[in-house]
Simulated scan of single mutants.
Amino acid sequence: MSYTLIGKHEKDSRANRDGYVSAMLEMMEKNKDLIHVDCDLMGCINTGKLLKAFPGQTFNAGIAEQNAMGVAAGMAATGLDVFIHSFGCFAARRMFDQAFLAAGYSKLPVHVIGSDPGVCAAFNGATHMPFEDCALYMSVPESVVIDSCDYAQTYALTKKLAQEPGLSYMRLIRKGFTTVYADGSDFEIGKGVTLRDGTDVTIIASGILVDEALKAEEQLAAKGISARVIDMHTWKPL
């Protein structure tokens, strides 16, 4: 694991979703068994780039999330490595039964990407704000659950997830995020990153709250309180 902290609280000109797409483009070029399944949201997550570059490895299952998970698990059962995307609310609530049984119970390499979790859904409203998405996937035995914070982390962890042998879930904000890490940073699934060291208090955060934790550390330091900040991007295994 090696990383470079930027932590200047600046918005990235890129979209976090492109960290996923860039990693997939590189991996799909080398691995013809790597598949992406989408639920009619290619325009939202920019995976239309995958369809254009690798039409034989990219599939649109339509607005039918439960069926999409069945398709993904079926592909994985034939020896393929499958990533499947939908908004976090649908990737969790809508397709969870199929994810648990068809992928988790069968220990198949299906990697679920849930975009716009929690308040990230913004104007889509309460129906599109899953706060329980990670909790659901953490309940699956031997699953991997990740909350990525920016482009560099999403890019790196997408590549790590492709090596995982079983069910995983990664939630990510699509765009409008704050840069925490420099490109080229690398991370280890299951191991947190100490961004600031301190002796009085420890703040553990993930996803969009990593930058907020860094801001809190600065405010505490101004008051003479030494705070350690840990980015625990992996919720499971912890």
Results as ranks from 00 to 15, higher is better:
G125S: 09
A126L: 13
A126V: 15
H128E: 13
M129W: 02
P130T: 15
F131G: 12
F131M: 14
F131C: 14
E132W: 08
D133V: 04
C134K: 12
C134F: 07
C134L: 14
L136E: 10
Y137M: 11
Y137R: 09
S139D: 12
P141Y: 08
E142F: 12
E142Q: 14
S143R: 01
S143V: 00
V145G: 03
D147F: 01
Y151Q: 12
Y151H: 12
Y151W: 14
A152M: 06
Q153T: 15
A156S: 15
A156E: 10
T158M: 05
K159F: 06
K159P: 02
K160M: 03
K160T: 13
A162V: 05
Q163W: 05
Q163M: 09
E164A: 12
G166I: 02
L167P: 01
S168E: 07
S168W: 09
M170S: 04
M170D: 02
R171T: 06
R171A: 00
I173F: 03
I173C: 11
I173M: 13
I173Q: 14
I173W: 04
R174P: 02
K175P: 06
G176N: 09
G176T: 08
G176C: 10
F177C: 13
T178V: 12
T179C: 10
T179Y: 04
T179A: 12
V180K: 00
V180L: 04
V180T: 00
Y181P: 01
Y181G: 04
A182I: 11
A182C: 07
A182R: 09
D183A: 04
D183C: 10
G184P: 01
S185R: 01
D186H: 06
D186Q: 10
E188G: 08
E188R: 03
I189N: 03
I189V: 13
G190D: 03
G190F: 03
G192V: 08
G192E: 03
V193T: 05
V193A: 05
T194E: 15
T194Y: 03
L195E: 00
L195C: 00
L195F: 02
R196L: 09
R196G: 01
G198T: 06
T199C: 09
T199K: 14
D200G: 02
V201Q: 12
I203M: 08
I203N: 04
A205N: 10
L209P: 01
L209R: 12
V210I: 10
V210T: 07
V210H: 06
D211A: 07
D211R: 04
A213S: 11
K215D: 14
K215G: 14
E218N: 13
E218F: 07
Q219K: 14
Q219T: 15
Q219N: 14
L220W: 06
A221R: 06
A222W: 03
A222D: 11
A222T: 13
A222N: 15
A222Y: 03
K223Q: 11
I225C: 07
I225F: 04
I225V: 15
S226K: 12
A227S: 12
A227T: 02
R228C: 05
R228K: 15
R228D: 13
R228S: 06
I230C: 12
I230V: 15
I230T: 11
